[in-house]
């Protein structure tokens, strides 16, 4: 079995994997970082979104071996020095989550949206969330939370 080595949440990790092992399986089963979730088997739901080299990626759609040498951030690595990331804080403040299962992927996607687009309009946020499914919130408060998180990430309050 091949060995992969990567940086996950600023820590160097390595492990033996089957070539067919998905990134999400490596993260969840081998690294025991269970914040990243699997909600479907067709790359649709987005519960598994992580950042690979700064880009949002569905970790169910990438092989672990493809990430050899990459820098991966999961939901567990988003808060820095015990401080919630502004997007995490916004989700809490605006009740952007209920059961919490889609939330890690939602937040990782949201951070990526803001990194790419600054402070997007409500319409843009809704379009950008095409790859993340939530069954609880009707998206109403997720959209609000992302707007609020975007403003804080861009220097607002």
């Amino acid at each position: 079995m091949p060995t992969v080595a990567m940086t996950v949440n600023a820590k160097s990790v390595s492990g033996e994997v089957e070539t067919r092992t998905l990134l999400v399986e490596f993260v969840r089963d081998q690294l025991r970082l269970t914040g990243t979730h699997v909600g479907c088997d067709t790359s649709q739901c987005g519960a598994c979104v992580v950042h690979v080299d700064g880009r949002a990626v569905k970790s169910c759609t990438m092989l672990a071996v493809q990430c050899d040498g990459a820098s991966v951030t999961t939901i567990e690595g988003l808060a820095a020095n015990g401080e919630l990331h502004p997007m995490q804080a916004a989700f809490r403040e605006h009740h952007g989550l209920q059961c919490g299962f889609c939330t890690p992927g939602m937040i990782m996607s949201a951070v990526d949206i803001v990194n790419r687009l600054g402070v997007p309009s409500e319409e843009t946020i809704r379009e950008e969330l095409e790859g993340n499914i939530c069954r609880c919130t009707g998206y109403h408060n997720i959209v609000k939370a992302i707007g609020a998180g975007a403003r804080v990430m861009n220097g607002g309050t």
Binding site: R28, L33, H37, E76, L84, F91, E93, H95, P104, I107
Partner: peptide, 19 residues
């Protein structure tokens, strides 16, 4: 009131059955 349970869900520290 903001939810008490949110902290674990927004930080990836929830405990679902598959975890």
């Amino acid at each position: 009131v903001p939810r008490k349970e949110d902290k674990r869900f927004i930080t990836g520290a929830g405990h679902y059955t598959d975890d």
